[in-house]
Design a protein around this nucleic acid. Structure first.
Lengths: 350, 350
DNA sequence: GTTAGCACTCATTTCGCTTGAGTGCTAATC
DNA sequence: GATTAGCACTCAAGCGAAATGAGTGCTAAC
């Protein structure tokens, strides 16, 4: 069977109506609402064909038709039109992102909050480190008698700062030597390599105090390093989903919320995606428990380095056009904001 | 009217039954289940008295009685017995908290996860800085041409590390001078004082480059400082609440979940509490939207200093005895873990 | 002071009935 | 051959009456 123009038009009308109302769409409604010059009976025949082709389903015999994941996929790929982001939304985004640019983490969180505010969906940010990332340098800084800060900088620009409680006395000089040693041994190496222990490291352990210090700090160094590879999830607007008819069913709501309870797992699932704005519909999601959700993500970057994903999750019935545009617009702004900070376009600095 | 022994006994029985079943308790059930030597009619009379005294309520005329917030308060203060934490729970807590002690943030998060796992309630951690906290020192560290790390250490031991993107070129020496300047000017001063701008600061701005750098970094310094005062919320086990009968009502569930959408607000509300294990029941909560929730928190500390709150939130109908014991036990362990790290009891350090 | 007894209340469940939106099929029409 | 009108059929959802039963409050007797 062929997807004729008319079939496409009907499918699009069904999707658009269903997305708006969350009610199965009947043939009569359709022929009334959209002034097509065909009768309900004809529409029924076409619908029947579309169902056979897998684009529509039926909650029960006497109900209207509901688009399938396949239909949404077709819609997103071929039928969907770019929706202009509303001026108010644009204004809010610009203003919010301008507010404090320097504090990376905070800005990105605020961006997520914004996203769920504008789309009325749940939003998330995932900040990973790429497995191929390499170590740039390591710094150890004295805080007090028993506390030092371990700072690890990766080539991607990712920075980890951790306060460590250590068990042995130390001198500032010893810290210096140790951090230089670590840097010397691991600089330019892949983090994964370092973690595997592939590299034969050469430490300055002549003095007993040095060797004690190293023995105390190295396990923490390794642990912190492995944490840097961990993906990290921040989410917002969870309660938005209660306004969506799909989630008046308590079980679906529970299902959805519990996605966010296994944060690390979810973060990992959300990461395995391509760059740019991506739409994943129902089944296409990595996790079975997300079968009735769609996810729209975009990649954001700082100084041109791909850094993380930001996006929204909602039911498969969502305004793909609108939401995609919003996610895209926001990400573009985010990227610009962080690029601008690099200074090329600034003239008040010199 | 007086709270006779018998009345207390009846009240306790009602609370214990209601906490278990979530169903209003009737006089017949009560006289059957608890072998008191009194008839349902007598119990009814007593119940009626208890209702008049504000300890019980009535969902409707022909329903059983439900304990009021006042009853729970009485229960927690006077009737509740200490419940021994189960050996399995103890084991899990000990093992989990032992795992990685040095990484403060991670450990505390894991503690929260644990808490919601064991109690089947939603858990949270709030990490604040006390308003009276004073600045200890400031450090600025080079990362790359346009990135520096700003490290602020407070007397309480709280450390803030932020990566800043700056707009002007800098030298390591200039960074050093600036961080020493900041430390010199603000050391020992209250963070709130510094933020108010009460202190006349004296900066080394002879060279243009220095003054540019300072102009670039100081606003960020102030912003980061004010962030240090902000309370911070981490939560876990949200979906647990769907297993609680109270929250099969979608509106109550939404209400509960949306508490966690305004994170900063919630964090602030959870902070205004005394030290030690605290139980806040229904109305007693700062926020009206928490009227039908109870909160059990405990204070944790590191090296006797840095202080935050960890705890659980659930419906007012909860197993106060059990949950309180668990929160208490876990916090004790947490505190011990962090104290131990200070070294006094360690002997493998040489 | 306690209890048995009884009338009364009211949420909840159940059942049958009606309604109406929708389909699928067939025969007539364009 | 495609389109449409017409009609029988299906089924979820809404409605109201009736039954159920857990519970109370009151009164009079113990």
């Amino acid at each position: 069977m062929n997807l004729t123009d008319r079939k496409l038009k009907i499918l699009q009308a069904i999707i658009s109506d269903y997305v708006r109302t969350a009610e199965p769409v009947g043939s009569r409604t359709l022929s009334k609402r959209f002034d097509m010059a065909i009768s309900p009976a004809t529409i029924r025949n076409e619908m029947s064909d579309l169902e056979e082709m897998g684009y529509l389903t039926h909650p029960h015999t006497s109900a209207g038709r509901v688009p399938s994941d396949k239909a949404y996929r077709l819609y997103v790929n071929n039928l969907m039109e770019k929706v202009e982001v509303s001026p108010e939304a644009k204004k809010t985004i610009k203003e919010t992102l301008r507010a404090d640019v320097e504090e990376f983490d905070k800005t990105i969180r605020r961006a997520a909050e914004l996203l769920s505010e504008i789309t009325n969906l749940a939003s998330f940010v995932v900040t990973p480190t790429k497995a191929e990332d390499r170590l740039k340098f390591v710094n150890l800084l004295p805080v007090d008698e028993r506390t030092v800060v371990l700072m690890i900088v990766a080539e991607s620009g990712k920075i980890s700062n951790t306060a460590l409680k250590i068990k042995v006395p130390y001198t500032e000089e010893a810290l210096n030597i140790l951090s230089k040693d670590i840097t010397y041994n691991y600089k330019g190496r892949k983090i994964t390599e370092v973690l595997r222990g592939d590299i034969i490291a050469d430490f300055n352990t002549d003095i007993e105090a040095m060797s004690n210090l190293a023995g105390n700090i190295m396990p923490n160094f390794m642990r912190t390093l492995s944490d840097m590879l961990n993906v990290n999830l921040y989410m917002d607007g969870l309660s938005n989903i209660f306004d969506i008819p799909e989630y008046t069913d308590i079980n679906r709501a529970r299902n959805f919320i519990s996605l966010f309870d296994k944060k690390e797992e979810l973060a990992r699932k959300l990461m395995n995606r391509d760059d740019g704005v991506t739409v994943t519909i129902g089944d296409e999601n990595a996790d079975d428990s997300m079968d009735d959700c769609s996810v729209i993500t975009a990649t954001y970057s700082v100084d041109g380095q791909l850094i993380g994903k930001i996006g929204v999750i909602g039911p498969t019935r969502m305004k793909y056009g609108e939401v995609t545009s919003i996610v895209e617009y926001l990400t573009q702004n985010l990227n610009e904001t962080f690029r601008l900070e690099n200074g090329e376009e600034e003239d008040n600095g010199g």
